[in-house]
Amino acid sequence: MVADDSDYSDNEIYDEVWPEDYFASDVEDCSLEALDLNDPSPAELVPIEILRKIVEPLGLRDRCSLSLVNRAFRKAVQASTWHVHRLAITSNEEDVPRNRSVMELSSRGIVLPPFSLQRRNAAHKWSVRDSGIEFLLGHLVNFLLGP
């Protein structure tokens, strides 16, 4: 098969020089300063999506522990989503349309306003355990009743 290259010049196809931005990563818009780990070199940039993928399988206590590791993980914890069966519960409105489960069951998608972990009140005290759902119910109660 011969490629249809009628729209291109030979140089564009065969000069073995790729456009400078062809492979450019587009992580700038969603990146955080990442773990320095064992590398003493300047901190790399790790997309927040990766940090969130690391955070999201974890329960409440582990997420709280991670928020103490460094600022990047703290932000990832704050932006993370909870998956409870087919529900996606998140403080990130952008997450909802991208989530397959929520797209299939749109009426079950819940978006919580941004919240911080320090909102302590009676509703939290009885509800929080390391399973995630109690944590979210606590925030829902808070959200519905106000601060």
Binding site: D36, I50, L58, N70
Partner: peptide, 30 residues
Amino acid sequence: LTLSCKAISNTFKGKTGPQIREEWGVPNEF
């Protein structure tokens, strides 16, 4: 990507923030 992230998550389970920092050699920014 999924498996690698999950493997990292698994190493964090049950650890405190300072323990994770120590194991991963993360400097304390706070």
